[in-house]
């Protein structure tokens, strides 16, 4: 079996391209890809594949860099970790409140997305938000979890953030 570094699909021995996502499985594909610095500078609407590790172990934490926000945020997600915009009036308290980062102006929903911890992986799912969740430039369908990798770009409405595993 050959595990695809992009989507984790297990391909048959001898496969040259991942059956699920079409990634080339031959050679040192990981080395051919642009550096992380470039990704950070790239346009927020660009589509690119992240190439960081997808392994997220028990001891790992997540560092979130929000664009135009001075401080990185370090979180330790539990089994489920919601991201959104706190609204005491309707009694909604997400695990991570993005109000200080301008969530309201940037169209972040009150319950926008959720991080979930699996077996050594971390996934994200959109919670049917008004303005959508984008992973590396691609809009996610609501309630469909997607695997996160170290260095991925997430956009909630117009709020752009990069996540790193620590």
């Amino acid at each position: 079996m050959i595990r695809c570094p992009n989507c984790q699909h297990e391909n048959l021995e001898g496969a040259l391209f991942c059956e699920e996502c079409g990634l080339s499985l031959w050679g040192d594909a990981q080395e051919e890809v642009s550096t992380r610095e470039l990704e950070e500078d790239s346009d927020e609407f660009s589509v690119k594949s992240g190439w960081g590790t997808a392994t997220f172990e028990e001891k790992n934490q997540v560092i979130i860099h929000i664009r135009d926000y001075p401080e990185p945020i370090i979180i330790t997600p539990g089994e489920e970790f919601t991201i959104g915009r706190q609204d005491a009036a309707s009694g909604i308290f997400p695990d991570l409140d993005l109000t200080p980062a301008g969530a309201l102006e940037k169209g972040v929903s009150r319950l926008h997305a959720v991080l979930r911890r699996g077996d050594d992986v971390l996934s994200i799912a959109d919670l049917d938000s008004a303005n959508g969740t984008y992973l590396n430039g691609q809009r996610l369908a609501a309630h469909q979890p997607r695997l996160l990798r170290d260095g991925d770009e997430i956009r909630l409405g117009k709020l752009v953030m990069h996540i790193y595993f620590k």
């Binding site: 989507c7 699920e20 996502c21 079409g22 990634l23 589509v47 690119k48 594949s49 691609q138």
Partner: peptide, 8 residues
């Protein structure tokens, strides 16, 4: 989406 990524 995978198709779009590969095409790019």
């Amino acid at each position: 989406e995978a198709l779009a990524t590969r095409l790019l």
